[in-house]
Design a protein around this nucleic acid. Structure first.
Length: 504
RNA sequence: GGCUCGGUAGCUCAGCGGUAGAGCGGGGGACUCAUAAGCCCUAGGUCGUAGGUUCAAAUCCUACCCGAGUCACCA
């Protein structure tokens, strides 16, 4: 029996509204989960990171308690994911009791084993930036932040530390033994370089504010990062002998943004090892969506409202663009013109129009009934396509997967133009016409199945118009056999699948 | 400044040792089932610069130039 598939997104820090970057990561995870489910058990986790000073600050600025603040924001996030047809199996919030209990249990356990110990956290502290600075970073003994430059003070407090340094050699060995466990390659290289420089223990407690998981026995709260990482195992009931935990852990893929690589590829495996658990199989750091090459961010004032995008291009239109435009892992540039062009050229013109012209001819020539299959080159020509696409998706090469699927789109459009069904009809060549129409319908059935993880909303419509009921999400190895579509299936011509956008 | 990645046709990128590729845009053509969509033909670019290795280099090495990211307790 194959192991269950487990995919996670980062839990999103809820100090504001969701933006397109959050949607991006989550959509990618959704494609992986939907694809994996066609083959067996899969679990898809996302959620929100709700502790820490920034949330506390944002809440107090709004005149709310941190918990109230989070509770008010949560619907926005969950609504966004609903609008994008995100099929998560669980949505964890770090303020949930089930999570906090695991965090405390982990803390206690590591305190017992000595991987968490009490030490002194000392350094030059800038109260304006709320940051500790290394002596070597100070500029003339003042805060090195060019926008600050204030005086710093020497602070010393007792903190709990995680013994990260102890795992440095094992981490390096793990990287060398598993050259593909962190992707893309650039991320892997960065982290290896960092490991070679060495690691220091780091503080995992905070006493200057109290919005976090209380340290068992008192003494402040647990540092939000230490708390946050544990969501990946608290959601699946971490404990040494829980069968549910062991069905899913270690995770198959953990998606992250490249800014949090250190925590996920150095700290996280070390914590897991300290608990006697395995590191995740793969951590994948994706790139940024840029706007004309510029990083997107609220502070830059160019944040994109994902709800507006859905309004214009539909959930599937946005999903398609995000997965098709760049190679997953690299940055890629977003613009209104680019997404509109892909939508029109590929979804409306290539796919949507193919679907419509096929059903239209079927209605005109065959009363919308799928004819008998005849001689066909398609079975042989595309026999390997589903497994190829499946592999590309599993390898997180979404762009290549969509390009591969488009080979079938193009082939079907070409077949229509080359064999001219309207002439076959006029000539009364029933056999040739039926054979072609059958291939077109069957090809579209294949397209619906292979595109279902990418375009869950529109492929469901395709499926219905093709006269099919169940089976859209079945195992490709069984359902994608050419000839699977039954003759005499009643199809129905509907509205345009992807209505063409009139561009200014 | 250290480290990482990138600099290939107008644009976005693939190729990563063996006589330069794709998509889009641009140009031309034949059709009509279709969302005036689709199909066919058409791209001659010092592969950042300068050296080096090799029978042979976008493809390996060195230096340099340009761009991006990152350098640890905000997440």
């Amino acid at each position: 029996m194959t192991r269950a598939y487990y995919v996670t997104t980062p839990i999103y820090y809820i100090n504001g509204d969701p933006h397109i970057g959050h949607a991006y990561t989550t959509i990618v995870a959704d494609v992986l989960a939907r694809t994996a489910r066609t083959r067996g058990d899969a679990f898809f986790l996302t959620g929100t990171d709700e502790h820490g000073q920034k949330v506390a600050d944002a809440a107090s600025a709004a005149g709310l308690s941190p918990q109230e603040w989070c509770d008010r924001l949560i619907p926005k996030w969950q609504n966004l994911f609903a609008r994008f047809d995100i099929s998560y199996d669980d949505f964890i919030r770090t303020t949930q009791l089930r999570h906090e209990l695991v965090v405390q249990r982990v803390f206690e356990r590591l305190r017992e084993t000595g991987d968490v110990y009490l030490g002194k956290y000392e350094g030059w502290y800038c109260s304006n930036d709320e940051t500790f600075w290394l002596e070597s970073k100070l500029v003339n003994g003042r805060c090195p932040n060019p926008e600050c430059g204030r005086e710093v003070q020497w602070l010393s407090e007792d903190d709990w530390f995680f013994r990260l340094s102890k795992y440095r050699d094992r981490l390096l060995q793990h990287f060398l033994d598993n050259p593909h466990w962190v992707r893309p390659r650039s991320a892997y290289n960065e982290m290896v370089a960092m490991l070679r420089e060495g690691l220091e223990d780091f503080s995992i407690s905070r006493s200057s504010f109290d919005w976090g998981v209380p340290i068992p026995g008192g003494g402040g709260v647990i540092y939000v990062w230490f708390d946050a990482l544990l969501n990946y195992i608290s959601a699946i009931d971490w404990s040494r002998d829980d069968p549910r935990f062991h069905r899913y852990w270690p995770a198959s893929v953990q998606l992250i943004g490249k800014e949090i690589m250190r925590f996920h590829t150095l700290v996280w495996p070390a914590v897991l090892w300290a608990l006697g658990e395995e590191a995740p199989k793969l951590v994948f750091a994706h790139g940024w969506i840029t706007l004309d090459g510029q990083k997107i961010g609220k502070s830059l004032g160019n944040a994109i409202d994902p709800f507006e995008l859905i309004e214009r291009f539909g959930s599937d239109g946005v999903r398609y663009f995000l997965l098709r435009e760049g190679h997953f892992g690299s940055d890629f540039s977003y613009s209104e013109a680019k997404i509109a062009q892909r939508y029109n050229d590929e979804l409306a013109n290539d796919l949507g129009n193919l679907f419509r012209r096929t059903l239209s001819m079927l209605e005109r020539y065959r009363n919308s009934l799928v004819p008998q299959p005849g001689d066909s080159v398609f079975p042989e020509r595309f026999a390997e396509l589903p497994s190829r696409v499946q592999e590309l998706i599993a390898d997180l090469r979404f762009r290549d997967a969509l390009e591969a699927i488009w080979e079938l789109v193009t082939a079907l459009n070409r077949a229509i133009d080359e064999r001219k069904p309207w002439e076959l009809y006029k000539a009364g060549d029933v056999r040739a016409l039926d054979a072609l129409l059958y291939d077109l319908c069957e090809g579209l059935r294949w397209l619906a199945v292979m595109l279902a993880p990418f375009l869950p909303e529109r492929t469901a419509i395709m499926w219905r118009q093709l006269g099919l009921e169940s089976g859209l999400h079945d195992d490709w190895r069984e359902t994608l056999v050419w000839g699977g579509l039954a003759a005499d299936t009643q199809t129905s011509l509907g509205d345009a699948l992807f209505p063409r956008l009139e561009l200014a």
